[in-house]
Simulated scan of single mutants.
Amino acid sequence: MEQDTDAEVEILVGNDCSTDCTKDILEKIEIAPDNFSMKVFNHSQNLGVAQNFCKLMEEVTGEYIVFLDGDDFMLPGKLSTQLDILKKNPEVNLVHHNVCEVNEDGVVTKQRRIKKGVAGSINDIFKACQSGIQSCSIVVRNPYIKDWSVIVPKDSKIVDLPFLLHSLGKGKVFYLNDVLSAYRVIDSSITRTTSVLTFEKNTRFHVRQTIDFGYAKRSFINTSLAASYIRSASAEIVNKKLKLASIYVWRALRLLPYPSNELLRTLLNLIKVVIKSAKS
C-alpha cells in the first residue's frame, strides 16, 4: 500500500473462496510498520459480494473506513491526505479523489478517470446521478451501523453505493482532484459480468432506501432514479425490447416534471430511437 501515516491502521480482508492464490499471498504478507495490522477472514463457503461486505463491516472498529476492492490499489499519500481533511473538517463525512485507470497488468491506460468530482452533500451526489465518485477513492467516518445486512440484502450486486450513501448521511462531501488510487479494469470483474439491468435495479433499490432515512431531498432522489431508468431503457433498446424500453422512459418522465436540459435531451433521444426502431 505504501502509505506513510501515524494513524493506527487495521486491514480487514474478506477472502470469499477465491480460486486464485489469494490465501497463499495473504499468508506471506508481512506488515512492517508497528501501526499497521491485518485480519484475514477465509470463508469456508462463497458468501457473495453482499454478505462478504456485511461480514467485514461487522468487524470494523476504527473511527474511519477506507473502501478498497481486491483488484484496485492505493497510491502513496492517500491515507494521510484524506485523514488529515477529515480531522480538520468535522462537518465532512466523506472524502474522495480522482483515480487513474489501469489494465489487468497494472499499466496505466487513463491518467484521470473522473472528469468532474462531486462535492457538497448527498443531494449533489444524486444530482450527478452517482457519477463523479469512485469507490476505491472513498474514506468515510465510521457511521457505526450495527447491522449492514438490513441495508445490503444478500442478493445485492452493489455494496459501494449503500456504503457511500449511509456513511455520508447528512454530512458533507469533500473532493480532491489529486490521483491517489488506481482503478483496475478487469473483464471478469462483477462490474463487467453483471447485466446493466441488474445493476440499475439494485441502484434504484439503494437510492430509494434514503427516502426513509431523510438524507436527501426527494427532487434529487427522483433525478437519480430517473437517470437509472434511462440507463435501463438504453439497455433494453440494445436488447431490442422496445416495449420495456418505453416503460422505463415513461417512468423516468413521471419522476421529472421539470427535468434538467441534459436529462431532457437524453430522454428525447431515447424516445426518438424507440419510435424509429418501432417503424423499421
Rank of each mutant, 00 (worst) to 15 (best):
Q130C: 15
N15D: 11
T198P: 00
W250G: 01
M74I: 04
D124Y: 07
A278T: 11
S232H: 01
K154F: 08
L68F: 13
N103E: 13
R254W: 10
E27R: 13
S181F: 09
M38F: 10
T22L: 15
K217T: 01
Y258W: 10
Q209S: 00
I230F: 13
Q111G: 01
A50I: 01
V49C: 05
T191R: 12
P90Q: 11
S156Q: 03
K116E: 15
E58A: 10
N46A: 09
N46P: 00
I31P: 06
D24S: 13
Q3F: 11
D71Q: 12
S277D: 14
G70Q: 09
I145N: 04
S121T: 15
S246P: 00
A227C: 11
F213A: 11
Y175C: 00
A226V: 01
I145L: 11
H166C: 01
L197Q: 07
V140R: 04
L94E: 07
D71K: 11
E91C: 02
E104F: 10
I29N: 03
C136V: 07
N93G: 12
K243T: 06
K276E: 07
Y229W: 04
D160I: 08
L253C: 14
D160C: 09
V49R: 03
K127S: 10
E236R: 03
H166G: 00
W250N: 11
K279D: 04
V273Q: 11
V118W: 06
G62C: 09
L56G: 02
E200L: 04
I65Y: 03
A233T: 00
L164N: 01
K110L: 15
A252H: 13
I221K: 05
E63K: 14
L244R: 09
S44T: 04
I85W: 06
I158V: 13
L225R: 04
A128T: 08
G120M: 10
A182T: 05
N98P: 06
A278W: 04
D105N: 14
K276T: 03
V238Y: 06
V173E: 06
D20R: 10
I190Q: 15
H43L: 02
P33H: 12
L270D: 00
G169W: 06
M57W: 08
S188E: 15
F53T: 09
D84S: 15
L242E: 05
L75F: 06
M38Q: 10
I125D: 06
A216M: 12
N15G: 01
D16K: 05
F220K: 09
C17I: 05
L79W: 07
V102K: 07
T203S: 12
V92D: 03
E58N: 08
I125T: 04
F53Y: 14
N269Q: 15
A245R: 02
F163N: 02
S44Y: 02
E262F: 08
